[in-house]
């Protein structure tokens, strides 16, 4: 479990001592806070976030780069954290779903849109969608409908059939919604 030291730095969980691959000291910023840690060469960024820093909102769906559940912002752009080594994040700025809205803050407009449009069911893939779209939002301006659809195609959801995710995304970016599903 990670804990905050007296100097305000986050110290992650001690890594396993049996690891045969090389070790590296890394320093990075995670959700605005400085982090220093020792990581083994092969540690995936996903596992570093989840198991060393206890930031478990970033989920693992495939570890092949297909599903997007592990999406995070690396220097402001959305990337698959399962296709990134933890050591590659040395010196970088990382943001995860936990960094979108602080514990005492209201949900961001993006999160709120997923809530209002019921753009989530089990919620397992949701952080990946949020971070993908947060990356799109970082670039400023309103994306075209095609750009938005292209971003959404980079994340898998098995529950929703995507219809409400598209509604949520369009709401968040101020795009007109698709034809409302009509109830008789």
């Amino acid at each position: 479990m990670s804990f905050r030291g007296s100097e305000g730095q986050i110290h992650p969980t001690t890594p396993p001592l049996s690891e045969p691959s090389g070790w590296h000291d890394i320093s990075l910023t995670v959700n605005g806070e400085p982090v220093s840690a020792q990581v083994e060469s092969r540690l995936l960024l996903t596992d570093f976030l989840r198991h060393r820093l206890r930031l478990t909102g970033t989920h693992v769906g495939c570890e092949q780069g297909s599903c997007g559940a592990c999406s995070v912002l690396l220097d402001g752009v959305a990337v698959r954290s399962c296709l990134t080594l933890a050591v590659q994040a040395n010196g970088r700025d990382l943001r995860t779903v936990e960094g979108l809205a602080g514990p005492d803050e209201p949900l961001t407009a993006l999160q709120q849109a997923f809530h209002e449009q019921h753009g989530m069911q089990c919620g397992f893939c949701t952080p990946g969608f949020l971070m993908s779209l947060a990356g799109l939002a970082e670039h400023g301006g309103t994306p075209s409908s095609d750009e938005l659809d292209e971003h959404l195609a980079g994340n898998f959801c098995r529950c929703t059939g995507y219809v409400n995710i598209r509604k949520a995304a369009r709401q968040a970016f101020g795009l007109p919604g698709p034809e409302e599903a009509s109830r008789g």
């Binding site: 780069g65 997007g68 999406s71 690396l74 752009v77 959305a78 990337v79 698959r80 296709l83 990134t84 993908s132 990356g135 799109l136 292209e150 971003h151 195609a153 980079g154 994340n155």
Partner: peptide, 9 residues
């Protein structure tokens, strides 16, 4: 190529 998230890296 892939998706924006892939092209970012």
């Amino acid at each position: 190529i892939g998706h924006p998230q892939i092209r970012n890296r």
